[in-house]
Amino acid sequence: MSIITVERKVLEKNDELAAKNRTVFEAHGLFVINLVSSPGSGKTSILEQTLCHLKKRMRVAVIEGDVQTDFDAQRIAKLDVPVVQIVTNGGCHLDAKLIQDALVNLTLDGMDLLIIENVGNLVCPANYDLGEHMKVVVASTTEGDDKPLKYPAMFRNASALLINKIDLLPYVRCTLAELKGNALKINPNLKVFETSCTTGQGIEEWCAWLEQQRTNLIHP
C-alpha cells in the first residue's frame, strides 16, 4: 500500500477558470454580479426593474441560467438588453466554464455591468465562483424568515441581500426583523435592501448602491 499526498481543492479547476473570467472582466472594465436565490423569489423581476433603471445610465448585459427553457432570456430581450441564455439541462448551478463559453456570445467592449442570473437554488451556486465581483442574494418574504440559517453558505458568500416581495409582508408568516437578524448573524457585513417589484419600493436605492459599488471597484 502506498499513499499519495494531494492536498488540493476539489473545485480548483472551477476556481482557475473563474480567475480567467475575472481577468477578462477586469480587462474590459466590466463590473459583474452573480444574482442567486431559491426559485420563485423574484430574481428575474428584480433584474427587469434594475435594467429599466440602469440602462439609461450605463450599458448592461445579462447571462441567464436555467435548468430548462429560455423564458427568462425572452423577458430580458424585450427590454432591449443583450442577453445570453444558458440552459443547464438538469444542472443545478452555473459554473465558471459555462460562463466562459457564454461570454463568446456577448460583446464586452464598452459594457459597464454584467448581471448573471444563476439557477434558482440556495445550495449549489454558493460553491461555484464564476469570476464575479460579488454575489447578491434575493430572499422573498413568502419564503419565511429562517432561510439564512438553513442555507448559511449562500448568505455568507453574498455582499448584499434583497428582501423581496416586501409588499406581501402583512399576509405571510415572516418577521422582517427576524429575517434581517438571521441574515446578519450569518454575515454581519451584508448590505440589506427591502424591495418590491410590484410597488417599486427599494429598487432605486438598490440601483444607486449597485452603481456606487461599480464606481468603487472599477474607477476608484
Binding site: 500500500m1 502506498s2 499513499i3 499519495i4 499526498t5 494531494v6 492536498e7 488540493r8 481543492k9 476539489v10 473545485l11 460553491n127 440559517l149 448559511p152 453558505a153 448568505f155 455568507r156 446578519l184 448573524k185 450569518i186 454575515n187 454581519p188
Partner: peptide
C-alpha cells in the same frame, strides 16, 4: 454558519474552519 460569537455576541469574527472541500490523500 453563524458568524456571531456564542460566548460574547460579537460579530467581529473570522472563520477558522468549515468551508473545506479538499482531496488530501489517495491510497
Amino acid at each position: 454558519g453563524v458568524a456571531q460569537c456564542s460566548s460574547c455576541g460579537s460579530t467581529d469574527t473570522n472563520i477558522i474552519s468549515g468551508s473545506e472541500l479538499d482531496v488530501s490523500e489517495i491510497e
